[in-house]
Protein backbone atom coordinates (compact mmCIF):
# COMPACT_ATOMS: atom_id res chain seq x y z
CA UNK A 1 0.00 0.00 0.00
CA UNK A 2 1.39 3.46 -0.81
CA UNK A 3 2.68 5.58 2.05
CA UNK A 4 1.44 9.17 1.84
CA UNK A 5 1.53 12.22 4.02
CA UNK A 6 -1.72 13.51 5.48
CA UNK A 7 -1.59 16.37 2.93
CA UNK A 8 -1.06 13.98 0.03
CA UNK A 9 -3.92 11.79 1.21
CA UNK A 10 -6.27 14.77 1.28
CA UNK A 11 -5.02 15.84 -2.14
CA UNK A 12 -5.76 12.36 -3.48
CA UNK A 13 -9.28 12.45 -2.05
CA UNK A 14 -9.96 15.82 -3.69
CA UNK A 15 -8.51 14.68 -7.00
CA UNK A 16 -10.55 11.48 -7.07
CA UNK A 17 -13.81 13.17 -6.10
CA UNK A 18 -13.28 15.94 -8.66
CA UNK A 19 -12.61 13.35 -11.33
CA UNK A 20 -15.69 11.35 -10.37
CA UNK A 21 -18.15 14.21 -9.94
CA UNK A 22 -18.17 17.37 -12.08
CA UNK A 23 -20.21 19.13 -9.41
CA UNK A 24 -17.22 19.15 -7.05
CA UNK A 25 -15.17 22.36 -7.10
CA UNK A 26 -12.80 24.11 -4.74
CA UNK A 27 -12.64 27.65 -3.38
CA UNK A 28 -10.19 29.23 -0.98
CA UNK A 29 -7.25 31.54 -0.47
CA UNK A 30 -4.04 30.62 -2.33
CA UNK A 31 -5.33 27.19 -3.34
CA UNK A 32 -4.67 27.56 -7.08
CA UNK A 33 -1.16 27.87 -8.45
CA UNK A 34 0.21 28.18 -4.94
CA UNK A 35 -1.41 24.84 -4.08
CA UNK A 36 -2.56 25.89 -0.64
CA UNK A 37 -0.42 27.02 2.26
CA UNK A 38 -0.29 23.41 3.47
CA UNK A 39 -0.07 21.96 -0.08
CA UNK A 40 -3.36 20.13 0.14
CA UNK A 41 -4.54 21.42 -3.24
CA UNK A 42 -1.12 21.08 -4.90
CA UNK A 43 -1.28 20.74 -8.71
CA UNK A 44 -5.07 20.35 -8.78
CA UNK A 45 -5.38 23.54 -10.81
CA UNK A 46 -3.25 21.95 -13.54
CA UNK A 47 -5.74 19.11 -13.93
CA UNK A 48 -9.01 20.88 -13.27
CA UNK A 49 -8.33 24.49 -14.22
CA UNK A 50 -9.09 27.78 -12.49
CA UNK A 51 -12.85 27.35 -12.90
CA UNK A 52 -12.90 24.42 -10.49
CA UNK A 53 -9.93 25.43 -8.33
CA UNK A 54 -10.81 29.00 -7.49
CA UNK A 55 -8.55 31.43 -5.71
CA UNK A 56 -10.66 33.77 -3.62
CA UNK A 57 -10.07 37.18 -2.14
CA UNK A 58 -9.65 37.34 1.64
CA UNK A 59 -13.42 37.46 2.15
CA UNK A 60 -14.41 34.45 4.22
CA UNK A 61 -18.04 35.49 4.68
CA UNK A 62 -18.54 35.95 0.97
CA UNK A 63 -16.83 32.85 -0.33
CA UNK A 64 -18.36 30.58 2.31
CA UNK A 65 -21.70 32.16 1.41
CA UNK A 66 -21.09 31.63 -2.29
CA UNK A 67 -20.30 28.01 -1.47
CA UNK A 68 -23.66 27.63 0.25
CA UNK A 69 -25.53 29.30 -2.59
CA UNK A 70 -23.80 27.14 -5.18
CA UNK A 71 -24.55 24.02 -3.13
CA UNK A 72 -28.24 24.94 -2.97
CA UNK A 73 -28.11 25.29 -6.76
CA UNK A 74 -26.67 21.82 -7.36
CA UNK A 75 -22.90 22.07 -6.88
CA UNK A 76 -20.67 20.30 -4.35
CA UNK A 77 -18.23 22.95 -3.14
CA UNK A 78 -15.23 22.19 -0.98
CA UNK A 79 -14.26 25.47 0.66
CA UNK A 80 -10.87 25.86 2.30
CA UNK A 81 -10.29 28.28 5.14
CA UNK A 82 -6.63 29.07 5.64
CA UNK A 83 -6.97 28.70 9.42
CA UNK A 84 -10.03 27.42 11.25
CA UNK A 85 -9.82 30.58 13.37
CA UNK A 86 -11.15 32.41 10.30
CA UNK A 87 -14.39 30.44 10.52
CA UNK A 88 -15.41 33.12 12.98
CA UNK A 89 -15.23 35.71 10.21
CA UNK A 90 -17.73 33.58 8.30
CA UNK A 91 -19.68 32.46 11.38
CA UNK A 92 -22.99 33.87 10.16
CA UNK A 93 -22.74 31.95 6.91
CA UNK A 94 -21.72 28.72 8.64
CA UNK A 95 -24.02 28.80 11.65
CA UNK A 96 -27.03 30.87 10.60
CA UNK A 97 -27.07 29.86 6.95
CA UNK A 98 -25.43 26.55 6.06
CA UNK A 99 -26.42 24.65 9.18
CA UNK A 100 -30.06 25.76 9.21
CA UNK A 101 -30.98 26.08 5.56
CA UNK A 102 -32.40 22.60 5.17
CA UNK A 103 -34.43 22.84 8.36
CA UNK A 104 -35.75 26.36 7.80
CA UNK A 105 -36.85 25.39 4.31
CA UNK A 106 -38.78 22.37 5.57
CA UNK A 107 -36.38 20.05 3.78
CA UNK A 108 -36.74 21.66 0.36
CA UNK A 109 -33.16 23.00 0.21
CA UNK A 110 -29.93 21.24 1.03
CA UNK A 111 -26.34 22.37 1.40
CA UNK A 112 -23.91 19.67 0.26
CA UNK A 113 -20.76 21.58 1.16
CA UNK A 114 -17.49 20.78 2.90
CA UNK A 115 -15.58 23.47 4.77
CA UNK A 116 -12.00 22.29 5.36
CA UNK A 117 -9.42 23.99 7.52
CA UNK A 118 -6.55 23.19 9.77
CA UNK A 119 -6.70 24.13 13.40
CA UNK A 120 -4.79 23.65 16.65
CA UNK A 121 -1.56 24.68 18.26
CA UNK A 122 1.93 23.37 18.85
CA UNK A 123 3.58 25.63 16.30
CA UNK A 124 3.67 28.95 18.07
CA UNK A 125 1.07 30.51 15.78
CA UNK A 126 -0.48 32.46 18.61
CA UNK A 127 -3.93 33.02 19.98
CA UNK A 128 -5.71 33.83 16.67
CA UNK A 129 -4.16 30.99 14.65
CA UNK A 130 -4.10 28.06 17.07
CA UNK A 131 -7.63 27.49 18.32
CA UNK A 132 -9.69 24.31 18.21
CA UNK A 133 -13.39 24.73 17.56
CA UNK A 134 -14.91 21.27 17.28
CA UNK A 135 -16.92 21.60 20.52
CA UNK A 136 -18.53 24.77 19.17
CA UNK A 137 -19.37 23.16 15.85
CA UNK A 138 -20.78 20.09 17.59
CA UNK A 139 -23.22 22.39 19.37
CA UNK A 140 -24.79 23.50 16.10
CA UNK A 141 -27.58 21.23 14.86
CA UNK A 142 -27.21 20.74 11.12
CA UNK A 143 -23.43 20.52 10.98
CA UNK A 144 -21.42 17.32 10.67
CA UNK A 145 -17.98 17.67 12.26
CA UNK A 146 -15.06 15.45 11.34
CA UNK A 147 -11.45 15.41 12.63
CA UNK A 148 -9.27 12.62 11.23
CA UNK A 149 -5.89 11.77 12.74
CA UNK A 150 -4.25 9.54 10.10
CA UNK A 151 -3.63 9.92 6.36
CA UNK A 152 -5.88 6.94 5.55
CA UNK A 153 -8.76 8.31 7.61
CA UNK A 154 -8.18 11.78 6.18
CA UNK A 155 -8.65 10.45 2.65
CA UNK A 156 -11.55 8.17 3.43
CA UNK A 157 -13.43 10.71 5.49
CA UNK A 158 -12.91 13.59 3.06
CA UNK A 159 -14.42 11.46 0.31
CA UNK A 160 -17.37 10.65 2.57
CA UNK A 161 -17.73 14.31 3.53
CA UNK A 162 -17.92 15.42 -0.11
CA UNK A 163 -20.62 12.84 -0.77
CA UNK A 164 -22.52 13.47 2.47
CA UNK A 165 -25.02 15.90 0.95
CA UNK A 166 -24.86 18.08 4.07
CA UNK A 167 -22.67 20.84 5.50
CA UNK A 168 -19.51 19.31 6.93
CA UNK A 169 -16.83 20.99 9.03
CA UNK A 170 -13.72 19.02 8.10
CA UNK A 171 -11.05 19.68 10.69
CA UNK A 172 -7.42 19.06 9.84
CA UNK A 173 -4.46 19.80 12.11
CA UNK A 174 -1.51 21.91 11.07
CA UNK A 175 0.94 19.49 12.66
CA UNK A 176 -0.55 16.40 11.04
CA UNK A 177 0.06 17.43 7.41
CA UNK A 178 3.58 15.99 7.26
CA UNK A 179 2.75 12.78 9.16
CA UNK A 180 2.86 9.64 7.03
CA UNK A 181 0.88 6.46 6.78
CA UNK A 182 -0.36 3.78 4.45
CA UNK A 183 -3.29 4.95 2.37
CA UNK A 184 -5.39 2.62 0.20
CA UNK A 185 -5.45 3.61 -3.46
CA UNK A 186 -8.67 4.55 -5.24
CA UNK A 187 -12.06 4.03 -3.67
CA UNK A 188 -11.31 4.15 0.04
CA UNK A 189 -14.24 5.33 2.10
CA UNK A 190 -14.36 5.79 5.85
CA UNK A 191 -17.93 6.12 7.11
CA UNK A 192 -18.99 9.27 8.95
CA UNK A 193 -20.02 8.70 12.56
CA UNK A 194 -17.85 5.63 13.16
CA UNK A 195 -15.02 5.69 15.70
CA UNK A 196 -12.01 3.43 15.33
CA UNK A 197 -10.15 1.45 17.98
CA UNK A 198 -6.56 2.37 17.12
CA UNK A 199 -5.04 0.27 19.93
CA UNK A 200 -6.56 -2.57 21.92
CA UNK A 201 -6.06 -2.65 25.70
CA UNK A 202 -7.72 -3.98 28.84
CA UNK A 203 -7.01 -1.43 31.58
CA UNK A 204 -8.32 1.96 30.49
CA UNK A 205 -10.02 3.56 27.50
CA UNK A 206 -8.46 6.74 26.14
CA UNK A 207 -10.79 8.58 23.74
CA UNK A 208 -9.19 11.18 21.50
CA UNK A 209 -8.99 12.42 17.90
CA UNK A 210 -6.91 14.61 15.60
CA UNK A 211 -3.36 15.33 16.79
CA UNK A 212 -3.87 14.34 20.44
CA UNK A 213 -4.82 10.87 19.20
CA UNK A 214 -1.14 10.46 18.29
CA UNK A 215 -0.24 11.67 21.78
CA UNK A 216 -2.60 9.09 23.26
CA UNK A 217 -0.94 6.31 21.24
CA UNK A 218 2.49 7.44 22.38
CA UNK A 219 1.31 7.58 25.99
CA UNK A 220 -0.13 4.08 25.61
CA UNK A 221 3.28 2.82 24.46
CA UNK A 222 4.94 4.28 27.54
CA UNK A 223 2.23 2.94 29.85
CA UNK A 224 2.58 -0.49 28.31
CA UNK A 225 6.16 -0.62 29.53
CA UNK A 226 4.77 -0.26 33.06
CA UNK A 227 2.26 -3.01 32.42
CA UNK A 228 -0.76 -0.72 31.87
CA UNK A 229 -2.58 -1.57 28.65
CA UNK A 230 -4.61 1.36 27.33
CA UNK A 231 -7.25 0.99 24.66
CA UNK A 232 -7.15 4.03 22.36
CA UNK A 233 -10.28 5.07 20.50
CA UNK A 234 -10.03 7.55 17.64
CA UNK A 235 -13.40 9.31 17.39
CA UNK A 236 -12.71 10.45 13.80
CA UNK A 237 -16.19 12.03 13.67
CA UNK A 238 -17.07 14.52 16.41
CA UNK A 239 -20.72 14.92 15.45
CA UNK A 240 -22.52 12.55 15.17
CA UNK A 241 -20.71 11.02 18.10
CA UNK A 242 -20.17 7.23 18.09
CA UNK A 243 -21.08 6.46 21.70
CA UNK A 244 -21.54 2.75 20.96
CA UNK A 245 -17.83 2.20 20.40
CA UNK A 246 -16.96 4.12 23.58
CA UNK A 247 -19.51 2.25 25.70
CA UNK A 248 -18.42 -1.12 24.38
CA UNK A 249 -14.80 -0.31 25.20
CA UNK A 250 -15.40 0.92 28.76
CA UNK A 251 -17.45 -2.17 29.60
CA UNK A 252 -14.13 -4.00 29.29
CA UNK A 253 -11.69 -1.41 30.64
CA UNK A 254 -14.00 0.23 33.24
CA UNK A 255 -11.88 3.39 33.12
CA UNK A 256 -12.21 6.40 30.80
CA UNK A 257 -9.98 9.33 29.94
CA UNK A 258 -10.91 11.79 27.18
CA UNK A 259 -8.11 13.84 25.63
CA UNK A 260 -8.50 16.77 23.25
CA UNK A 261 -6.65 19.90 22.29
CA UNK A 262 -9.65 22.23 22.48
CA UNK A 263 -10.34 23.88 25.80
CA UNK A 264 -11.47 21.57 28.58
CA UNK A 265 -14.12 24.02 29.70
CA UNK A 266 -17.47 22.99 28.14
CA UNK A 267 -15.51 20.80 25.76
CA UNK A 268 -16.17 17.47 24.12
CA UNK A 269 -14.73 15.60 27.12
CA UNK A 270 -17.52 16.98 29.28
CA UNK A 271 -20.10 15.85 26.73
CA UNK A 272 -18.71 12.35 26.35
CA UNK A 273 -18.38 11.80 30.09
CA UNK A 274 -21.88 13.12 30.75
CA UNK A 275 -23.27 10.70 28.18
CA UNK A 276 -21.33 7.82 29.71
CA UNK A 277 -22.86 8.54 33.12
CA UNK A 278 -26.32 8.83 31.54
CA UNK A 279 -26.12 5.77 29.34
CA UNK A 280 -23.91 3.41 31.40
CA UNK A 281 -24.03 4.80 34.94
CA UNK A 282 -22.46 1.92 36.83
CA UNK A 283 -19.74 0.97 34.40
CA UNK A 284 -16.72 2.95 35.59
CA UNK A 285 -14.87 1.95 38.77
CA UNK A 286 -12.96 5.23 38.96
CA UNK A 287 -14.28 8.68 38.01
CA UNK A 288 -13.83 9.51 34.34
CA UNK A 289 -11.37 12.28 33.55
CA UNK A 290 -10.69 14.71 30.72
CA UNK A 291 -7.62 16.52 29.50
CA UNK A 292 -7.74 19.55 27.25
CA UNK A 293 -6.27 23.01 26.85
CA UNK A 294 -6.23 25.12 30.00
CA UNK A 295 -8.56 28.10 30.07
CA UNK A 296 -6.33 30.78 28.58
CA UNK A 297 -5.76 31.93 24.99
CA UNK A 298 -3.06 29.90 23.21
CA UNK A 299 0.34 31.56 23.77
CA UNK A 300 3.32 31.63 21.40
CA UNK A 301 6.48 30.81 23.40
CA UNK A 302 7.11 27.08 23.45
CA UNK A 303 7.36 26.84 27.23
CA UNK A 304 4.00 28.61 27.54
CA UNK A 305 2.18 26.76 24.80
CA UNK A 306 3.35 23.41 26.17
CA UNK A 307 2.00 24.39 29.57
CA UNK A 308 -1.42 25.17 28.10
CA UNK A 309 -1.93 22.29 25.66
CA UNK A 310 -2.16 18.66 26.79
CA UNK A 311 1.12 16.74 26.34
CA UNK A 312 2.01 13.04 26.26
CA UNK A 313 3.34 13.28 29.81
CA UNK A 314 0.01 14.71 31.00
CA UNK A 315 -1.80 11.71 29.57
CA UNK A 316 0.61 9.25 31.17
CA UNK A 317 0.28 11.00 34.53
CA UNK A 318 -3.53 11.09 34.38
CA UNK A 319 -3.70 7.39 33.57
CA UNK A 320 -1.29 6.50 36.36
CA UNK A 321 -3.46 8.43 38.81
CA UNK A 322 -6.55 6.58 37.64
CA UNK A 323 -5.11 3.08 38.06
Amino acid sequence: MPVLTYSQALNEALREEMQADPRVFLMGEDIGHHGGVFRVTKDLIDTFGPERVRDTPISESAFVGLGIGSAMAGMRPVVELLFMDFALVAADQIVNQAAKMRYMSGGTLSVPMVIRAQQGGGRGNGAQHSQSFESWFAQIPGLITIAPSTPADAKGLLKSAIRAGNPVMFIEHKLLYSTKGEVPEGEHIVPIGKADVKRVGRDITIVSYSRTLLFALEAAEQLSRQGIEAEVIDLRTIEPLDMDTILESIRGTVRLLVVHESHTNCGLGAEIIARVYEQAPDTLITPARRLGAKHVPIPVAEALEDAVLPQVADIVKAVEEMM
Binding site: L66, M72, M104
Partner: peptide, 29 residues
Protein backbone atom coordinates in the same frame (compact mmCIF):
# COMPACT_ATOMS: atom_id res chain seq x y z
CA UNK B 1 -37.80 32.15 5.84
CA UNK B 2 -40.21 31.71 2.95
CA UNK B 3 -38.63 29.18 0.58
CA UNK B 4 -39.65 27.39 -2.58
CA UNK B 5 -36.87 26.10 -4.84
CA UNK B 6 -39.45 24.99 -7.42
CA UNK B 7 -39.83 28.70 -8.30
CA UNK B 8 -36.16 29.51 -7.69
CA UNK B 9 -36.77 30.97 -4.25
CA UNK B 10 -33.67 30.05 -2.24
CA UNK B 11 -35.01 31.53 0.92
CA UNK B 12 -35.81 34.75 2.63
CA UNK B 13 -33.27 35.59 5.28
CA UNK B 14 -33.47 36.97 8.80
CA UNK B 15 -29.86 38.17 8.78
CA UNK B 16 -29.35 41.50 7.05
CA UNK B 17 -27.22 41.12 3.87
CA UNK B 18 -26.78 37.35 4.31
CA UNK B 19 -28.74 36.59 1.16
CA UNK B 20 -26.30 38.44 -1.11
CA UNK B 21 -23.58 35.76 -1.13
CA UNK B 22 -26.18 32.99 -1.28
CA UNK B 23 -27.72 34.34 -4.49
CA UNK B 24 -24.27 35.08 -5.86
CA UNK B 25 -23.30 31.48 -5.14
CA UNK B 26 -26.33 30.29 -7.09
CA UNK B 27 -25.14 32.52 -9.92
CA UNK B 28 -21.72 30.87 -9.67
CA UNK B 29 -23.39 27.46 -9.92
Amino acid sequence: HFTDPSVGLLGANAIVAAGLPLATGAALA
